[in-house]
Design a protein around this nucleic acid. Structure first.
Lengths: 364, 364
DNA sequence: CTGTTAGCGCCTTCAT
DNA sequence: ATGAAGGCGCTAACAG
């Protein structure tokens, strides 16, 4: 049975013209009830109300009842700012999201959604700032507007890291730059993931395995930290297995993909396995192969690194090392909260282990 | 005259022992500098520092300089919670975003992005909550964690409205429900937009104009508030122009769209104008018409209501009444801030006027 | 089990 | 142009 504590007893009127209780009718600010009001109404002391609410001290049943009634009657709600000032914590996490046009909105929303859920479960709320507004991100933590900061879309040699490293509050990066600047990081283990994909292809008979990836960003452009690690994993796995390695950079347009399939697979038969780390090209590849009549699991096997929904939707069901975006989001929040607890433990990096999910593009 | 050493008026507590001097690096909490520290360092009073920072009182150049130096030296940053408590405002806006799978992530991100920008420009930050978590949305405003709340994705007969209407802080809805419950609303004027699209088609020679829309949600499912208004605009415009009206509900799959084109346009030639309020079907329609050999501006003209990028991308450039998502976002923030200023002005609805952009699917 | 009280860091009305 | 002092609403020692 649900005991209503903050229940709303009665509706007033259409316009809620029933201004504050007794005061004088001159109704200005509704001027919400405070803990002092509750104390008076319940005939107890201020601190008793506080302890009743926080449960940090035993309260007699009768007292608690009177307090609860007063709270319901006056529609009391604790004031976040006051609590924050006294506790020195806001129960707010900062989240810097990228607004660059070249990042997939769907992926971002998945991150944001999982981070929101995880934060809410721990009774934290989330303040969003755009990653491009560096000043603002720094400011909300310096001013104590948030207790910790999560930064998405970290790129190689990210220029924000030195500033972030100076902050006195926990900062967690989503990504894994070569130089973390001593900051905590959470990410998928792209290196292990790439190796796993290659091994799975090889274990299923492929021996001429190419890696397909997007063109390296235009010189100087930002490079996501996973690009290097995935590529490294691929070459390491090939080396380990004694295979030749060849990285093919493919622009994300159907023509280029079709050309590749025609030249390198159909005619050349150069590859019997493809490791694809290139989400937009995945669907194009599927269409090109079916149109050109390349038998997929038989002639050439395909394994990708991609979010599960990307791998499954589209024209075919691609076997893949699934990118567990929600897990990354949750781990990130968890790490932020941990660092909020133990300010002392040194920052570390947490890489989520890969799992291979065979689907329709690899042999059984 | 009284020579007061830096008044230790109330610094007795064990906490305020002010051992902040370099002491030893026993380093516990960095314990950020406060305004009192700045005052001491600059040799002025607390209030002087406060006024220097807020600029609400003239400060002599020399004093200001010393204060600025102290601030720089001690790396001072005002504390948001303290300021919020004193000012009774947090400079934080709440934003409830939908997480329903059937809302386009891209559109959401556009809303969120524009709202973030607008808020930041006014020196507000944004707290994100998921619309599904109604309790939480209410709570962040009741506890004064945010100064106002913006709620996206309002549906017809939205069950959240009564609760939102009870709040004592400004609430702004994105959408325009029939019963606003006295809440402020901002939205695109879908009614006028639909009428405009029909008139433009008619003005260009079309006289048998159908409206294409997604199937009405399964009974009981949430219905976005714009569905009714767009449809109403269509029928009103047809009536006004003395045209027959026919609303065609099309599921968002290529087969259905192709069937429609084949049966109703190719064979039947029943329509020479299509008013499309159905984003996912737009691209499908373009492909179907070109594959089936329907001459687009000549045989049948098409005008849509859609975000500009949706209208322009895809297989054809659709003439359309562009949905100005960023403007809606900005207006929403503006309205929230207005209501924060003038708590008295009654809530009202703001509908953004439509503009027709002729592109390739209408005659000149 | 319950009160009393001193802050948390900043703003602002009075004095000067 | 500058100080002094009293909150803002809540928490957490200290006393009983």
């Amino acid at each position: 049975m649900m005991m209503r504590r903050w229940s709303v007893s009665a509706r007033v009127g259409p316009t809620a013209s029933a201004r504050s209780g007794r005061g004088r009718g001159g109704g200005q600010e509704p001027s919400m009830a405070t803990m002092t009001d509750i104390a008076r109404e319940a005939g107890v002391s201020l601190s008793t109300v506080s302890y009743a609410l926080s449960g940090k001290r035993p309260i007699s049943a009768s007292t608690r009842t009177r307090i609860d009634q007063a709270i319901a009657k006056l529609r009391y709600h604790p004031t976040a700012s006051a609590r924050a000032l006294a506790l020195k914590r806001t129960s707010l996490l900062g989240l810097a999201v990228p607004q660059r046009p070249d990042v997939d909105d769907h992926v971002i929303m998945e991150f944001v959604g999982s981070i929101l859920s995880a934060a809410h479960e721990a009774d934290y709320d989330v303040v969003l700032v755009t990653a491009e507004d560096r000043e603002r991100a720094l400011r909300i933590v310096e001013e104590g507007k948030v207790d910790a900061l999560i930064v998405m879309d970290i790129v190689e040699d990210d220029e924000r890291l030195p500033d972030l490293a100076r902050l006195h509050s926990p900062v967690v990066l989503i990504g894994n730059p070569q130089d973390t600047n001593g900051l905590a990081c959470v990410d998928f283990d792209f290196l292990a993931g790439a190796m796993l994909a290659v091994r799975e292809l090889h274990g299923r008979g492929a021996s001429r395995i190419a890696m397909l990836k997007p063109p390296s960003a235009a010189a100087g452009g930002p490079v996501p930290t996973y690009a290097r690690r995935a590529r490294l994993g691929y070459t390491m796995a090939c080396a380990e297995l004694g295979l030749d390695s060849e990285v093919v950079e493919l622009p994300p347009d159907s023509a280029a993909v079709a050309d590749f399939v025609r030249d390198q697979i159909l005619s050349g038969a150069r590859f019997d396995g493809l490791f694809v780390h290139h989400e937009p090209a995945l669907a194009m590849l599927g269409r090109a192969m079916s149109q050109l009549g390349v038998a997929c699991p038989e002639e050439v096997q395909v394994a990708a690194i991609a979010p599960a929904d990307v791998a499954r939707n589209g024209p075919w069901e691609v076997s893949s090392v699934d990118l567990p975006i929600p897990s990354i989001g949750r781990s990130t929040v968890a790490m932020a909260l941990e660092r909020l607890r133990d300010r002392e433990v040194p920052a570390h990096t947490r890489l989520l282990s890969p799992t291979f999910v065979p689907r329709a593009t690899t042999l059984p």
